[in-house]
Structure formats: C-alpha cells, structure tokens
C-alpha cells in the first residue's frame, strides 16, 4: 500500500475529504460573520448562538409541528433571521456610531443569554435529530465510505457561498450595500433606505448561521453549547481570511478545515490548537489577514 509520510494514502485522502467537509461549516459560518462585519462593522458574537438556534428550531419544527428537514432548511433561517432583525432594530442599530467593542460586548452578552435560556429549557445533553431518509447511506469512494449527507453539506455550502458572493458583488442591491458601507449619508441622499438595508443585511447574516445550524443538526449533537464550540474557531477563520472579506472567509474556511483534518492524523492532540497557531502566524506577518485590505 502506498504511503505518504508514513500514513497510508487512502487514509490521507479520506482525511483531506473530511477536512474539506468541516471546512464547509467553517466557510458557511464565517461567511455570515464576514457579511455582517463587512457591511455593518459589527463583530457579531451572537453568531454561535444563532447557529445553535437554527438547529433547535429544526428540532422544534419536527417535534411540535411534524415538519421535517426540508421544511426546516427553509423555515429555520427565516425564523432565526427574524429574531436577528428584531435584535438589530432594538439594540444593535443604536451602536453603529460607537467603537466596535460595544457591538462585540452587546452581541457576546446576548449570545450568553440565549445559550443560558436554551440550556435551562432543554438541558445540556442535547436532543436527537436524524438524517433525512433521502440522504441516508453512503458512497464507496474506494479509499473511504463517504456518507451521502456529508457530500450534500459540501455542495450546499459551496452553493450558498457562491450565491452570497454573487449577490454582493454582482447585483444592484449588492452595489447599494457596498456603497452604503463606504458612505451611508451619500447613499441615503440618493433616496435609498440605508437603515432598512442594514437591518436586512444583519437578518441575512443571521439566517446564514441558522442555515448552517440546520445542516449541522443531523450530524452533531444538538445541544446549547454546540455554537460556542465552533464560534471561536470561526472567528479565527474570519481573522485569518481578513475581517469583512467574503472571498477570504470562504477560502480560509475550506483551507483551515483541511489543515485541521491533516493535524488530526499527524498530531491529534494539537488539532484544536492548530488553527490558532496559523492565526498567530498570519497576524504577525499580515495583520489585515490573507485577503483583507490594510
């Protein structure tokens, strides 16, 4: 059997693929963060809790209304996105003129409160959620068995990333948004409702987090701390990619997923740390991140 660095080649390919799949989650989550930061200048620390809410709403839709995975994929982002809109209107919008730090502290606090409330209601050990019948089973790729569901996650994540990028870079609404980030007063003078646009952008970023939450529900334990575990890594991804850079967060998300996947083979104990080592190195050499503008 062929070996690469003492590891059988098939095993290594498998790990690369798994890294890519985890990278899909990182990309999807950091995308929402990058959109919110890029357009609103808010460091959204509630993102982990909103990811978790997406998964819990999926569970609630199934348990209380009998609505399955496909409905959840549509409805959970809308419901959690609406919560985001409410949050933006009542609280976050008051902080736009202040330093980033205020928005960070507010969203961090709201995240903790949401997590605590869910924990109080549903406990900490999590709730069951199954893979939809249509996506069960696995493909034999020769070097590993690839669950169909994971393939689906990668495809959906890539489509979502691409769609978001297209909307922001190639459509009229995207150009309004980018203009409003540069000079809100001028854009408002042209008769465009900038505050409404900000609110909807935040709502969309939150909906992306909830969407990732629904995707995660069948494979990760649906528990209140599921977002907190991921969010720190995702923040590192955003920082490495360059705060606010959409392309940066997507590329870095997938790239770091792969680096983490390889670390799990060569030095598993360090797999939770490797991303932060990369972050430290990037910050020392390129403080604005790989794709950021200094």
């Amino acid at each position: 059997m062929d070996e690469i660095f003492g590891i059988p080649a098939p095993l290594l390919f498998g790990q690369l693929l798994l890294g890519l799949i985890n990278g899909a989650f990182y990309a999807l989550l950091s995308l929402g963060l990058a959109v919110i930061f890029g357009m609103l200048n808010v460091i959204n620390f509630t993102h982990g809790a909103q990811f978790m809410l997406g998964a819990f709403v999926a569970w609630a839709l199934l348990s209380f209304l009998g609505l399955g995975y496909w409905w959840a994929l549509l409805l959970a982002p809308l419901i959690v996105g609406a919560f985001g809109v409410l949050l933006e209107r009542t609280m976050i919008s008051r902080l736009y003129k202040l330093d980033h730090l205020y928005g960070l502290l507010l969203t961090f606090g709201v995240g903790l409160i949401v997590e605590g409330l869910v924990r109080n209601e549903f406990g900490s050990s999590g709730l069951p959620y199954r893979i939809p019948a249509e996506l069960q089973g696995s493909w034999d790729l020769g070097f590993m068995f690839m669950p169909i569901y994971r393939g689906w996650v990668v495809v959906v994540a890539i489509v979502a990333c691409l769609a978001t990028w297209l909307v922001i870079e190639k459509t009229k609404i995207g150009s309004y948004l980018r203009a409003a980030t540069e000079n809100p007063a001028l854009v408002q003078a042209f008769g465009i409702n900038v505050p409404l646009m900000m609110t909807l952008t935040y709502g969309a970023g939150v909906a992306l987090a909830a969407f990732a939450g629904v995707l995660a529900a069948p494979i990760y334990s649906v528990n209140p701390q599921m977002g907190a575990n991921l969010i720190i890594i995702v923040f590192a991804v955003v920082v490495i990619g360059g705060m606010g850079s959409i392309l940066g967060s997507v590329v870095t998300g997938f790239g770091l997923g792969i680096i983490e996947g390889l670390t799990k083979v060569f030095w598993p104990e360090a797999s939770a740390t490797v991303i932060f080592v990369v972050m430290a190195i990037v910050l020392l050499t390129r403080p604005a991140g790989l794709f950021g503008r200094a």
Binding site: L18, K264, P268, S271
Partner: peptide, 21 residues
C-alpha cells in the same frame, strides 16, 4: 488509540475513520 482535544472537539469523523483503518 487517538487522543482528542477536550473540550472543543465536535467532529469525530476523522478519528472514526482512523479507527476503522
């Protein structure tokens, strides 16, 4: 055996595939 970081590991698929191998 493989040692997984605690806390902070959510995806075990990589370790499960190693175990299977």
């Amino acid at each position: 055996s493989v040692r997984t970081p605690f806390p902070g590991t959510t995806d075990f698929s990589s370790f499960l595939v190693q175990a299977q191998a």
